[in-house]
Structures are given as C-alpha cells and as structure tokens.
Amino acid sequence: MTNQQLEEVVKRLGVEAVISEAQFLTVEVPFDKLFDLARNLKENEQTQMDYLILITGVDYVSSFGCTYLLTSTTHNHYMVLKTRNIDKANPRVDSVTSLWQTAEYHEREIYDLMGITFNNHPDMRRMFLDESWVGHPLRKDYVDESNIIERKY
C-alpha cells in the first residue's frame, strides 16, 4: 500500500493523529491513544502491521517520546508510530507486548535505559543494568561523574 492509502486508513480509524511524511509515513498520536491505534493497525486487513521492527525511546528534554517502526510482512509497507509528551515525572505508556511479543525485550530495554514504564508489561525489570543502579543513563540529564568523561570539544 502506498503512503497515501495508509494515511487514509489511519484517518478512517478516527484517531486524532498528526500525519506527516518523512522517510516513512509518520503518525503521531497522544500516548494514551497509542495502544488502540496500534491494535487497529495490526488487526486491520488493509494494513496488517504484524512485524514491529523497533521501539526507540527518546528524551525530548521537556518530555519523553516513543517511536515505533512497523511493517507488514504481507503488504511490505512501513509506518512510523510516534508519541510524544509523555510526562517526565511519571512516564507511563501502554505496552504493546500483547500485540507484538518482540516488544517485551525492547520495552524492557527502554525502561532500563530511559526510565519509561510500560503498563501491562508482563515482566517490567531492568534489562542490562543491575537492579540497584540509580538513574536511567540514556536520559539527557543523566549525570554520572565516575563513568561519563566529558570530551573537551
């Protein structure tokens, strides 16, 4: 399906989304609507987004965001799902593990390094770091004087 057709499908789903076209079609939704849209995209006959390639957790300084790259193995089209404005004090997003099992490890990784908690995740533990580790290293405001050496330029 072309990006345009995809766009129409998303619009028909009736989700308040900001759609823009970059390398792939990018759909930006509020984080509380994300799960519904993702489920629709997966279950819709026309889209069939059955393969979640990656989830990126991003720290936008004022808030957090998550980017999902989706593709369909039958239609071979791509779509980027984006969500921003996740509250910094208590970052919580709905987990998509029930849709794509691969999300389990990706979300654990984001939880570990970015500190975004995923609701309804089966096993919300740290992935790489020790349980006793303080802070989430990929945040922009993370300070660790002993391990991070600032470069001169």
């Binding site: 390639i53 990126t56 991003v58 790259l69 691969t102 490890y105 990706h106």
Partner: peptide, 28 residues
C-alpha cells in the same frame, strides 16, 4: 535485520541514535 534510527536536531552530533540489533529479538 539491523536498523539504525538516527534522530537529528541539525547538529554535528546526533540527538539520539538507536540500533535495532537483530540478536536482542532473537534472544527473546
């Protein structure tokens, strides 16, 4: 499948880089 996801804010260093490594998914 390795996916490189670069988020740029126009500087000479990337704002955020994400590597989707194949082995993490395989491990799961």
């Amino acid at each position: 499948e390795l996916v490189v996801h670069i988020i740029s804010d126009g500087n000479k260093t990337p704002y955020r880089v994400k590597f989707r490594s194949p082995c993490l998914s395989t491990l799961s």
